[in-house]
Design a protein around this nucleic acid. Structure first.
Lengths: 204, 204
DNA sequence: CCGGGAATGGCACTTTGCTGCCAGACTGGA
DNA sequence: TCCAGTCTGGCAGCAAAGTGCCATTCCCGG
């Protein structure tokens, strides 16, 4: 059990360096992937390592994150998106598991597990979740082909649904269905919140 | 008649430099006030000149604009906010009027008027609008005392109005009234738009 | 103490937004 | 051709948001 990312990194750096298979699930990557960007000299390392990463849909909306994901993807990492709530977890070579706990204030505690049985169990859960997740590409395709751009424009224009639907040449029901999908993707439960998040993610 | 701000500036710089009374109405100041920030050596000039500026409420929400306004205000300029739609207009010493026309593509045309009768007419319109506008300070006070911060928090949280009202300890009607005022202030006609603008203005 | 203006919040009502259901159109594969 | 899966959009019903009206309360100057 370690507290804070700094300590986690210090203690596990050698494990990461030696790993040939890294599986990672995360809600976002503000925590550490961004704080510790992959250095150029590590590109080869990424390529040599079997890297799998699984995120919540929200990551698609952070420009910095999206860039990072694209970088990882072009260097051999496999990225998937899951709809389900997941705990942040890292698996190394099927021998080490790192599970994030609750954050107490600003610091987050991490549990490093090496017990084979436990790691095995966690690994199987990860595999199940991985199997149920969607590849980043197809997910992105689904998003872009959604016509999200147009929908967002209409929403941001402040016009009412009926007007927007007519402008886009689509039925009212369909327009609202799109808005609902978009809001789910943004993790928003009100239109105000959706507007704020869309803007936050630089989608406007 | 001149096209584009560059040309306008080139041709009118000497007029601005010599003016002792500058009255200005604008929807925003992306156009020129920001593009041509007041240089330090002009502080004294601002102080010596009788400067009046009139804007739409929206300007309060752009950090850069707000900063500029504060700068101008602390250096003797009088700033007012008007609810009415206004055309961008500049009046110099009651002898010269500059009226912005429609923008054709990226370039905006400006009409520089020196005819005393015309200028006199425009000046009177400006005075009328000015008289009906609100001082920046009182406008800002109205905004801050509104408890906008709390309202915005609730809106951004995505909860429903009833919950938000209960959280803030006010009636549903009052909460919605506040939201409506806020939306008017933001110039938004839908909550999505309000969310986007609030975020855009850095209010979240 | 009193009167007037502003703020509040309850109530009723309209509008707008959200969603389940279902029928019809479209698509790709057997 | 037929079938199954997907997408669409109309309809209905409901939830949420927006608004006018008005009684009540609060505050402030007279």
């Amino acid at each position: 059990m370690v507290r804070g990312e700094a300590e986690l990194f210090e203690r596990t750096a050698h494990l990461f360096a030696a790993a040939t298979e890294v599986s990672c699930a995360a809600r976002d990557l503000h925590t550490w992937s961004v704080a510790h960007p992959t250095a150029p000299e590590r590109e080869q390392a990424v390529r040599d390592t079997n890297v799998r990463k699984m995120y919540l849909p929200g990551v698609l909306f952070d420009p910095a994150l999206a860039g990072h994901l694209r970088f990882m993807a072009t260097h051999g990492a496999r990225i998937r998106i899951t709809e389900r709530e997941i705990n942040e977890t890292i698996l190394l070579d099927r021998r080490i598991a790192i599970v994030a706990g609750d954050s107490v204030g600003e610091v987050r505690s991490y549990t490093v597990i090496s017990s084979p049985d436990l790691v095995q169990g966690i690994q199987s859960l990860f595999e199940a979740a991985w199997a149920g997740a969607t590849d980043l590409e197809s997910y992105q395709a689904r998003f872009t082909e959604l016509g999200a751009r147009e929908i967002l424009e209409q929403l941001a224009s402040g016009c009412k649904d009926e007007t927007a639907a007519r402008t886009l040449g689509v039925g009212l029901r369909t327009y609202r269905r799109r808005v609902a999908e978009l809001m789910e993707l943004l993790g928003a439960s009100s239109r105000f919140q959706a507007g704020a998040r869309a803007r936050e993610a630089g989608l406007l």
